[in-house]
Design a binder for these strands. Structure first.
Lengths: 243, 243
DNA sequence: TGAAACATATTGTATGACAAATAGCGATAA
DNA sequence: TTATCGCTATTTGTCATACAATATGTTTCA
């Protein structure tokens, strides 16, 4: 029906990026299963009508993200998904293409529920003045958003991402990165609810606890915030996200 | 003094991997700071005496891991560390080279404390029979290790890693990967303590809770386990890991 | 003053050749 | 028959060179 089902790789982008996208989606979708070997480079090249240079750079990207391994004569094989960098923005994007929304939103929520209270508590201890100003301004942007849904969502995402960065623990940062793209959809869903007054209060509680350097209070406030966010999404989508 | 200070890149490995390692360490160490642009490819090539092909494949890997961005004429720039894939095994390895041990162990512990109880609880709900068998056999290997430190450490690492995989939530898996390399050092430290009887009991508690599908019990047992593990490491190293 | 055309540096792509590694086969010997 | 060694062929890895595409800065012109 649709000749161009998904404009995932606009022609403007570099060739090796488009190819990596194409292969990445195919792998994530399961066209090539774990342990399987891809066709040899030469064959892949003529299949797509590109040079080996571009193809190898595309493969090199996928190898770096843990999707593939290669060795001479053995070929290029798909690794077990346990080795993939699932928090990588590209891989996440490919997953979103092929996984149903509810499933991946639910899984991300499970991770958030584990990490965000801890991140808030760490931020309360480790945040610099600059971090506090950033959180303050993210929060202010939420307040100022008014009825503008788009602005609200951006500010909301920025606020949560800033919490992760304020931990000054780089192992938390990849999770914070999810607030740039992977969680936008969830926030857009939640933004349609008429719960903004309550959301502002709850975000304010987290902000205050961090600014006043009270880790346990920050932890508690984040737990409350996420709990209610869950309820909102559940309510709006009509599914139970936590069986 | 020492001509080969660190055997990070044995000559056996592929050239582009050695180069990526070298550049990766240099970037992580701060030789090239965030926002800075690297020398042009041509120059990098003649600096190291290699072809542009190999150099570009090395750069492509670093770009895929979020360390670099490149565009024509603008050159190749170092990205803000917030965009790096800090859970990636390679990046972790490079960090270990240049960061003091206590700092990165402490930060990893902070992440574990947040995620591992949640992972155990999820595993109690989502684990398949195969997952349960795996955990069982990891645990048995710990018991069977006897006085063999190396076996104990391997089994211990495997047990914790298996918990993350048993969540069937792929966003937890990159954290579980840390138990393959990044946390070995910590486990080796803890293994020197004479607390094995207690450790076996505590690991057994987590295992039983997961097998009997009791999430809140698994959560609690994991909290206890990590709490004591922290004490052990603190005791042995003589530092306070949590200020 | 401003905008548009042009020169230039740098990354991106193509091509063709050769090197290195390794799985699989075959030959050889015990 | 069985095990070991070595050969061959396939596939990835590296090299050299040329040209294309893109963004920057400068120069020219209205």
């Amino acid at each position: 029906m649709d000749a161009t089902p998904r404009p995932l790789a606009p022609a403007s982008l570099k060739l090796h990026i488009r190819v990596a996208d194409q292969l990445g989606v195919a792998i994530v979708r399961g066209d090539y299963k774990a342990g399987e070997t891809l066709p040899p480079e030469s064959q892949l090249c003529e299949m797509l009508g590109i040079s080996r240079t571009a193809m190898r750079e595309a493969l090199r990207s996928l190898i770096a993200k843990g999707l593939l391994v290669s060795s001479p004569k053995r070929g290029t094989r798909v690794r077990d998904p346990r080795h993939w960098s699932h928090l990588d923005p590209d891989i996440l994007r490919w997953r979103v293409e092929v996984t149903d929304t509810d499933t991946y939103l639910k899984k991300m929520f499970e991770l958030r529920r584990a990490t965000e209270p801890a991140a808030a508590a760490l931020a309360a201890v480790a945040a610099t003045d600059e971090d506090r100003l950033q959180l303050q301004s993210d929060f202010q942007a939420m307040v100022d958003a008014g009825a503008d849904n788009a602005r609200w969502v951006e500010a909301d995402l920025a606020f949560h991402r800033s919490i992760y960065f304020a931990t000054h623990n780089e192992f938390f940062w990849p999770i914070g990165q999810l607030f740039s793209f992977g969680l936008r959809q969830m926030f857009e869903i939640a933004a349609r609810g008429d719960h903004r007054p309550r959301a502002i209060i709850e975000h304010g509680d987290v902000l205050r606890a961090i600014i006043e350097r009270k880790p346990s209070m920050a932890h508690a406030a984040a737990v409350t915030l996420i709990g209610n966010a869950t309820s909102d999404v559940v309510l709006i989508r009509g599914h139970d996200l936590e069986p």
